[in-house]
Design a protein around this nucleic acid. Structure first.
Lengths: 184, 184
DNA sequence: TTGCTTACTTACTGGTAAGTAAGTATTTTT
DNA sequence: AAAAATACTTACTTACCAGTAAGTAAGCAA
């Protein structure tokens, strides 16, 4: 990917997390990068192309990141995930899923599918990590790992939303209690 | 409140939940109600006035609803709350908090404050209900009731978001496991 | 019956949005 | 050296948005 394209995707990623997909415009990309509206359209003809670019970038980064974690004990892998969310929390960001799923009905079908796959990526990894952690007696929880993954995923996702409204200590309380619940 | 004003608020409530606050316009209100753009502005001069109207309507309804539940055993009160969310889930709606918190940074300050108070309303009630339920041995959980309320609140909120993307069985799995975790 | 309020409509403004057609300068390929 | 691809800019279109000014018809109130 060219340098310019990369800068556009990074900035769009930020804007989606801070203001939402329907609340930023090509001008918000073009101006800070000192180019014209039409230059952004050159790289991403439609806004949904830009949205898809952002999601794919994020999915690739996630895949690379979890690969780096995969020799760590499971509770540390989960802690790493929580750390990623904490950094976003303190930057005032919400996660891509938390930003794009409320707008889901307004998105183009090809972008909707990309959002869906991102959700499946994360849930699949988290399910596996929880299942393995339980097998190795590092986690203790009731029910299926896939259901537990849903609970934890929704906690993390919405903790960023609630933190935006009620302050960052919300995130700390949620992530702490979450971990506490899992440790035998 | 006049009948017209009430119809506007109800429709706006729907639109916020289905498409998001920044993704509907006065035209989307005016057209189905067979009036002109300017008539909506007559009742709600700025869009934030309409937003505030919707939130206040919802907060009042919530207050009235929990008052009706307050003689029920705590686990049934929580089940009632889950039922409210389930109905929204099957209507394709998300909750107001789930819709407005991603857009929080784009909202007018007076509307932000209203969102904040709505969050505090729900968390306060849920904390109290969990605390009372634990005292009466109807619930069992680790940690502070206020922290548990945060976990459950975020589960419910984001379960509607995830259901929109991955289908309504997501909500069923989350709400079921959530209840299971609390029952002694 | 004159005046005031309510609940609108008509007609508009200024601004912004996504998107595009056509042209240009620079680099790369043949 | 000619042709073609790359990465833009200029200049524009179409469409919509929130918001407003001015007018109006109906009802009520002194």
């Amino acid at each position: 990917m060219s340098e310019t394209k990369d800068k556009i995707v990074s900035l769009a990623d930020q804007l989606i997390r801070v203001r939402g997909f329907n609340a930023f415009s090509y001008k918000d990309i073009a101006e800070p990068l000192e180019m014209k509206n039409a230059a952004v359209h050159y790289h991403f003809p439609a806004k949904s192309d830009l949205g898809i670019g952002v999601i794919q970038h994020d999915r690739n980064r996630f895949a690379a990141t979890i690969a780096k974690w995969n020799k760590l004990p499971e509770q540390e892998q989960l802690q790493q995930l929580i750390n990623v969310f904490r950094k976003h929390c303190h930057a005032g960001n919400i996660c891509l899923m938390g930003s794009l799923s409320p707008d889901y009905n307004t998105l183009a079908p090809d972008m909707q599918q990309e959002v869906q796959q991102m959700a499946e990526d994360i849930l699949h990894w988290l399910s596996q990590t929880l299942e393995n952690g339980r097998k190795h007696k590092r986690f203790q929880f009731k029910g299926k790992a896939a259901d537990r993954a849903l609970l934890i995923m929704t906690n993390l996702q919405a903790s960023l939303l609630m933190s935006r409204v009620l302050g960052p200590e919300i995130f700390t309380r949620i992530s702490h209690q979450l971990m506490e619940d899992l440790i035998p």
